[in-house]
Computed example of a mutant assay.
Amino acid sequence: MQCFVYRSQRKADTYVYLRERDAFGLLPAPVAANLGPLHFVIELALSPERKLAREDVNAVMANLAGPGFHLQLPPPPELFDNS
């Protein structure tokens, strides 16, 4: 399954995976407005065997097959142990 990855220029460390290149109409209007302009990063071939750095490839593929997009949010801030 091919996908196209875009980086939000408004939200740090936020990426959108789309099943079609430049198919921004797949994004719900409130999501698109919140992300602002999107910058193309890379085209990927996804398969169940492929490893992604921060996402479960099966979840990404399911979202692309369903609504047509997957939103990758920044990781939660790490909690520091001050002991």
Score class of each variant (00 low, 15 high):
Met1His: 09
Phe4Cys: 02
Phe4Ser: 03
Phe4Arg: 03
Phe4Met: 03
Ser8Ala: 10
Ser8Asp: 14
Lys11Glu: 14
Asp13Glu: 15
Tyr15Ile: 10
Tyr15Gly: 04
Tyr15Cys: 05
Val16Tyr: 07
Tyr17Val: 09
Leu18Val: 06
Leu18Gly: 05
Leu18Asn: 10
Arg19His: 08
Arg19Cys: 13
Glu20Cys: 07
Glu20Phe: 14
Glu20Gln: 15
Arg21Asn: 06
Asp22Ser: 10
Ala23Met: 10
Gly25Trp: 14
Gly25Ala: 14
Gly25Asp: 15
Leu26Trp: 06
Leu27Thr: 10
Leu27Ile: 11
Leu27Lys: 05
Pro28Asn: 09
Ala29Lys: 12
Pro30Ile: 09
Val31Ile: 15
Ala33Thr: 14
Ala33Gly: 10
Asn34Trp: 09
Leu35Lys: 07
Leu35Phe: 08
Leu35Ala: 11
Leu35Asp: 06
Pro37Phe: 02
Pro37Cys: 02
Pro37Met: 05
Pro37Tyr: 04
Leu38Lys: 10
Leu38Arg: 12
His39Gly: 04
Phe40Thr: 03
Glu43Trp: 00
Glu43Val: 06
Leu44Gln: 05
Ser47Gly: 03
Ser47Lys: 00
Pro48Trp: 00
Pro48Gly: 01
Glu49Pro: 00
Glu49Met: 02
Glu49Cys: 00
Arg50Ile: 11
Lys51Asp: 13
Lys51Gly: 03
Leu52Ile: 04
Ala53Glu: 10
Ala53His: 03
Arg54Trp: 05
Asp56Val: 04
Val57Arg: 03
Val57Cys: 01
Asn58Phe: 01
Val60Thr: 07
Val60Met: 09
Val60Trp: 08
Met61Gly: 03
Met61Ala: 03
Ala62Val: 01
Ala62Trp: 01
Asn63Val: 00
Leu64Val: 06
Leu64Phe: 09
Gly66Trp: 01
Gly68Pro: 02
Gly68Ile: 06
Phe69Met: 02
His70Arg: 01
Gln72Ala: 15
Leu73Thr: 10
Pro74Ala: 14
Pro75Leu: 15
Pro76Tyr: 13
Pro77Gly: 14
Glu78Met: 13
Leu79Gln: 10
Phe80Thr: 05
Phe80Cys: 01
Phe80Arg: 04
Phe80Lys: 00
Asn82Pro: 10
Asn82Val: 09
